[in-house]
């Protein structure tokens, strides 16, 4: 694979035009485009650190309950559909790929390609949300909504028995598992909900970038916002990379 190195400075007067803010993409507070680039990159990474801690809080809580209620969580996760989870992981990884290519196209000022890749990314994100909708409504139908309609393991235990007889047996023996399983679904909705919200924000922001690229089709554009949104999108992907095995897979099948 060959990586190209290129001076992407949009500054027509070279790198060090002090005080000469004739580059339309250069913020007033910056001296040159390189400083602006570095600043945005570091800023975005600091934001990512913040996101890591934000998700980290709920991950830590989940980890502790996974440790405390090992058995219940291992039973409860069987109600999650590995197929849809895998599809969604696939979709998100692929969208990360199209995002990366979109950012690359933006750097090369290949406007059409950028718009195409971004639309693909949005499409994948929508597929992800669609799958989430299917999964959520299945949970709703099965009575797996903590706090409001958590009846699968009490009123509809026979449904469980068909697929996972050992779970039904365990719950019958030990009804105390039910609130613990409720807690699992509490975490499931809290974590995937929070993640889904990030996907939704991603769709909106990427959509805005598509419109921006569309309107300014023939002008050279500052690719920094594109790259920042790219970083955000990959972060959303990373969160899912951890969520998927921890929620859907760990605990045996």
């Amino acid at each position: 694979m060959s990586n190209t190195t290129q001076d992407l400075s949009l500054d027509p007067h070279g790198a060090h035009g002090h005080g000469a803010h004739d580059n339309p993409h250069l913020g007033e507070q910056f001296e040159d485009i390189a400083q602006q680039y570095d600043t945005y990159t570091v800023g975005m990474w600091a934001f990512i650190v913040q996101e890591v801690m934000f998700f980290g809080g709920v991950f830590a809580a989940y980890a502790i309950y996974r440790y405390k209620y090992l058995e219940a969580f291992s039973y409860a996760h069987l109600e999650l559909d590995v197929f849809w989870g895998t599809v969604n992981t696939f979709v998100l990884l692929f969208s990360s790929f199209t995002m990366a290519l979109g950012v690359r196209a933006a750097m090369l000022q290949a406007r059409k390609a950028q718009i195409g890749f971004f639309l693909a990314t949005i499409l994948f994100a929508c597929v992800f949300m669609g799958v989430k909708y299917v999964e959520y409504s299945a949970k709703f139908d099965h009575g797996l909504i903590p706090g409001h309609n958590f009846t699968l393991y009490t009123e509809h235990l026979n449904e469980v028995r068909e697929k996972h007889p050992h779970v039904a047996e365990a719950v019958e023996k030990n009804p105390a598992l039910v609130p613990q399983m409720e807690l699992f679904f509490g975490f499931y909705f809290a974590m995937t909900g929070l993640h889904g919200l990030h996907v939704l924000i991603g769709i909106i922001v990427i959509g805005a970038l598509v419109i921006r690229a569309w309107i300014n089709k023939n002008k050279p554009l500052d690719y920094m916002p594109v790259e920042m949104v790219g970083l955000y999108w990959h972060l959303v992907d990373i969160v899912w990379i951890f969520l998927f095995p921890l929620l859907y897979l760990v605990g045996g099948h």
Binding site: N3, E31, Q35, Y37, F90
Partner: peptide, 24 residues
């Protein structure tokens, strides 16, 4: 102001493709 130059590496499409493949 900046840590060195501002020349940016633009990876090739192949690089991203292989990355995707490994992830899959």
């Amino acid at each position: 102001h900046h840590d060195g130059g501002h020349a940016h590496v633009i990876p090739s499409v192949g690089f991203y493709f292989w990355t995707l493949l490994v992830l899959m």
